[in-house]
């Protein structure tokens, strides 16, 4: 398995179906969906509520499995990995940013950021160095030992982003990262993501409801009725 992008294509999704079963009822969320994302892209994923945006993001991040089809990230066949392989693969290649930050309330900012590094072979000193750098990148040098409840929403999301980038993952997956923030704070977070994409060449896939947010991305795709299109549906 290699992570070298072919023709610059990092995410390659082909003919993917995703069906949920609720009792006897089958919900076809994604059907024969195709998507290619190039390395270094900042992709915005839009669509109505319940259209399957989070579901698609989960498939890319190896959090869930497609019912059918190919999910290949940097040449790795995510759809064919075992649970165990997937966990290790996620640790190396994926950084998640959540709408509600999902920090551990009992750990300080720096300890939250350190969590993904515990899975690596880095020494304590090296881990501290990486944590410092990540918190510096998101502009939170001064609040490293604060607990999440003492931080504002914007600050918590910065910690969430620092946690996502601290392992230097291949892709950043953000599910409505500004969905719980006011416009101004949301803008700051978007600027931060933009900077990560522009300055560090991070590939970012971001789910959003906000057209304003999608303008910060280099490309926007729309999910509707299980399929993607480049145009917003009528």
């Amino acid at each position: 398995m290699s992570t070298a992008p072919r023709n610059g294509v990092l995410v390659h999704i082909e003919g993917v179906d995703k069906t949920f079963r609720r009792g006897s009822e089958e919900i076809h969320v994604l059907s024969n969906l195709n998507l290619e994302v190039k390395a270094g892209e900042f992709l915005a994923l839009m669509g109505p509520s319940g259209s399957g945006k989070s579901t698609l993001l989960n498939l890319i991040g190896g959090l869930d499995r497609a019912t059918r089809g190919t999910v290949s990230i940097g040449g790795d066949r995510v759809d064919q990995m075992s649970d165990r392989e997937l966990a290790g693969w996620r640790a190396r290649h994926i950084g998640f940013v959540f709408q509600f930050y999902n920090l551990l309330p009992v750990l300080t900012a720096e300890r939250n950021v350190e969590l993904p590094l515990l899975l690596t072979h880095l020494s304590k000193a090296e881990r501290r160095k990486h944590v410092e750098t990540a918190l510096h990148v998101v502009g939170l040098d001064h609040r490293t030992s604060a607990y999440p409840r003492t931080l504002s929403g914007g600050e918590q999301q910065r910690v969430g982003i620092a946690r996502a980038i601290v392992t230097d993952p291949t892709i950043l997956l953000c599910d409505e990262p500004t969905g719980d923030l006011d416009r101004k704070t949301g803008d700051e977070i978007l600027s931060l993501l933009q900077a990560l994409n522009r300055d560090q060449g991070k590939t970012i896939i971001m789910v959003t409801h906000d057209p304003h947010a999608s303008h910060r991305a280099s490309r926007t795709v729309y999910l509707n009725k299980g399929q993607l299109s480049a145009e917003a549906p009528e």
Binding site: D83, W89, R90, N102, L115, L119
Partner: peptide
């Protein structure tokens, strides 16, 4: 539950 989901999303294996 969510926290455990987040840990797993980060790459924490089921065994861990």
């Amino acid at each position: 539950t969510e926290e455990i989901g987040v840990l797993k999303a980060m790459g924490y294996s089921n065994g861990l």
